[in-house]
């Protein structure tokens, strides 16, 4: 089974983002960029499925500016076999991403696609569900465990009240939650090997997709800052303040 894993280049999760003074977005110039953490979990899961003999080939896909090739290289160093970069300067929103990935799925015919459940930049949490819809495939979102049996897939999902297990026919879409696995660090030899793995570059037009955004960002602002309050000296003082000052208990 071939697995397609989309990976997104985002501002590293350790970076404290700053809103641009002109209100057009957040500062990304000179900021450390990394693979979206949920996508790392997706790549790791695909690599483990290959190690178990369930997957035969892993294709890492990234969509965006030329620098997204670095994110693909990271996936290749973790164990993906080859990469596809769909290069564009357009601000890609989830619906456009889903359409591009659908076109790639039709070309590559994977048995499974594993995506991160959300990107930590736009926090949309929607691409996997939309891709599943466009392909007419079932979806196992927010997955914490995958089991392949009888030609299908059962997915344990993290839901509002705990865990839920669903059975999906294949091909299917899975989106990863935090507890699915702990991604590996790429070893130096694997980083070297990844440099020789192929990355194909396409344009949205090659896939017959119009990637124009549907949402116009009117402005981006910093949220109101919460002021730090006071330290209290004892539990008794805390309880007294909560009762008489804050009046919340």
């Amino acid at each position: 089974m071939k697995i397609l894993v989309p990976v997104k280049r985002v501002v590293d999760y350790n970076v404290k983002v700053r809103v641009k003074a002109d209100g057009t977005g957040v500062e990304t110039a000179g900021v450390k960029m990394s693979m979206n953490p949920f996508d790392e979990i997706a790549v790791e899961e695909a690599v483990r499925l290959k190690e178990k003999g369930i997957a035969t080939e892993i294709v890492a896909v990234s969509l965006g500016i030329a620098a997204c090739a670095e994110t693909i290289r990271t996936a290749l160093a973790m164990g993906a076999d080859r990469g596809i970069l769909v290069e564009t300067d357009v601000d890609l929103q989830p619906l456009a991403v889903a359409k591009l990935l659908k076109a790639l799925a039709e070309r590559e015919q994977p048995g499974l696609m594993i995506l991160g459940k959300q990107a930590i930049d736009d926090d949309m949490s929607s691409t996997g569900q939309m891709l599943a819809a466009l392909l007419g495939w079932p979806q196992g979102t927010f997955a914490s465990k995958l089991v392949f049996e009888n030609g299908g897939l059962t997915v344990t999902r993290e839901v509002d009240g705990g865990l839920e297990t669903v059975a999906l026919s294949l091909p299917a879409i899975v989106t990863t939650d935090l507890r699915l696995n702990e991604p590996r660090y790429a070893s130096l030899p694997n980083i070297m090997k990844a440099r020789k793995k192929p990355i194909e570059t396409l344009k949205p037009a090659d896939l017959g997709v119009d990637p124009a955004p549907r949402l116009t960002v009117l402005k981006v602002v910093e949220p109101a800052k919460r002021k730090a309050g006071a330290k209290v000296g004892s539990v008794a003082e805390l309880v007294q303040k909560l009762r008489t000052e804050a009046k919340v208990i």
Partner: peptide
């Protein structure tokens, strides 16, 4: 925007060719 809501709404939106707005 619960786990249940986030699971279903984008799927419906894509089928209507609409870009959902989350959270």
């Amino acid at each position: 925007a619960t786990a249940a809501g986030k699971n279903v709404l984008p799927r419906a939106a894509a089928l209507m060719d609409s870009q959902p707005i989350s959270e």
